[in-house]
Design a protein around this nucleic acid. Structure first.
Length: 403
DNA sequence: AAGCTAGACAACCGCGTTCCG
DNA sequence: TCGGAACGCGGTTGTCTAGCT
């Protein structure tokens, strides 16, 4: 008697809690649901390895946890996503990528699995149909321009794969929408051009925040170098945390602005993550005062990718004098230099239903330096993070960052 | 009616992180 | 400090169903 492939795999890779051959798999029955509900209502959630045995289930503990968190939890919504949720997902995805757990935490009653499935089945296609690459959140035509500027595809990593697929879909299905979302595609109502702009704007802004996205749309090789050198920042450094917080702030802020203003938040160029008097991040509770533009608030401590590049290049330098200069410069550089404006950004069509010229004018992100005058970039980052947690103490309680 | 296909969503898997003895 | 267990997350697969041919 041969074991099926599944059973063989089970024996080899299943964790200790699930390595029993008689563990049941597949769709849960109402009876099983009732058992797990009864158990959790009595004992509470937790210690999942013990749950199956105590609840009388022939299931893996991991499977029980998944069933509870994704389906049985009483606080879950089971109705379809609202347009507001949809827009929030798109914005957050543009800002932080496929961090489904974080995105789901911004949507009460939704799980990461819900959001992920909804994205994969609905939103990806919608964006593609609108001529937007759902990974980079940039119009395909813009990406083509970018690739031309970059002069190759090698730096684009795995995004190119989805680009190929999604761009193909877009071309095949609704090529007429490419970059010209008028009339709106099916399924998108009057928020479409707003959304389309939103997704590209947030994307471009977020890429200023989170190095590691598709290279920005400029042909500045120095920028390319810095983007490459920082490409892994988003994985495990404090930049990641800070950047995500800022990105979420940005998106939340954008939502507030969009809700409160008749004009979209990207009105007149760029939305800034600007510093109000003492804080580097706008308070989401005071959206009207924080939806500022470059012309309204200008920090004296601006910097750009180029500024940062100088630092990084010099840090790599073997010249001690140059390195000293870098240390001096870095005292004011915390993060996230602005998008470099580039005339290439302005090469986009001028007859679009929405004006792309402001896209090229985007992102002059400005972040103030820390007050502590840290002597290195890393120290500055840590100081900045500490300051931010002082400003937003509730973040320390947020399980999505410290779970 | 049968077969095929695509969409929706539930569930699983592998891996990294955290917890705890 | 270390190692194993537990947990959490993102990617992927499996299953069901509706619509079409």
């Amino acid at each position: 008697m041969f074991l099926s492939n599944l059973d063989q795999k089970d024996k080899m890779v299943r964790p200790p809690c699930c390595d029993k051959l008689n563990v049941k798999r597949g769709i849960w029955t109402a009876e099983e649901d009732a058992k797990i509900l009864a158990y959790i209502s009595k004992h509470g959630a937790g210690n999942w390895t013990a749950v199956p045995k105590k609840a009388g289930l022939r299931r893996c503990g991991k499977s029980c946890r998944l069933r509870w968190t994704n389906y049985l939890r009483p606080d879950l919504k089971h109705d379809s996503f609202t347009p507001q949720e949809e827009e929030m997902i798109i914005r957050l995805h543009a800002a932080i990528g496929s961090r489904w757990a974080i995105i789901a935490q911004q949507l009460p009653g939704r799980t990461d699995n819900d959001v992920k499935n909804y994205w994969n089945t609905k939103l990806r296609k919608k964006l593609s149909d609108m001529g937007i690459d759902p990974v980079t959140h940039k119009p395909f035509s813009q990406i083509l321009v970018d690739y031309g500027n970059i002069g190759g595809l090698s730096k684009c990593g795995n995004r190119i794969g989805s680009l190929n697929r999604d761009m193909k879909n877009a071309f095949m299905s609704k090529s007429q929408h490419l970059y010209q979302p008028s009339p709106p595609p099916p399924g998108f109502s009057n928020i479409n051009s707003h959304l389309m702009m939103t997704t590209t704007m947030v994307s471009s802004q977020a890429e200023s925040i989170i190095p590691g996205g598709l290279l920005n749309n400029n042909n500045n090789t120095s920028d390319n170098m810095i983007m490459n050198s920082l490409g892994n920042y988003s994985t495990n450094s404090s930049v990641d945390l800070l950047a995500q917080l800022q990105a979420i702030k940005l998106v939340t802020e954008a939502s507030n602005c969009a809700d409160n203003m008749s004009a979209p938040f990207y009105n007149e160029g760029s939305l800034l993550l600007s510093s109000s008097s003492s804080s580097s991040l706008p308070s989401s509770s005071s959206s009207s005062s924080t939806c500022s533009t470059a012309g309204q608030e200008k920090s004296p401590l601006n910097f750009s990718w180029q500024d940062f590049l100088l630092d990084e290049d010099a840090l790599l330098s073997t010249d001690p004098q140059e390195q000293n200069n870098v240390v001096e410069q870095s005292q004011n550089v915390i993060l996230l230099p602005s998008h470099i404006n580039n005339e290439n950004n302005n090469t986009t069509q001028t007859n679009n239903t929405f004006q792309r010229t402001d896209y090229g004018a985007v992102p002059s992100y400005e972040f103030p330096a820390t007050s502590s005058g840290a002597s290195s970039f890393v120290e500055a980052m840590i100081d900045r993070e500490n300051e931010m947690f002082l400003e937003f103490p509730d973040l320390l309680e947020d399980p999505c960052f410290y779970n």
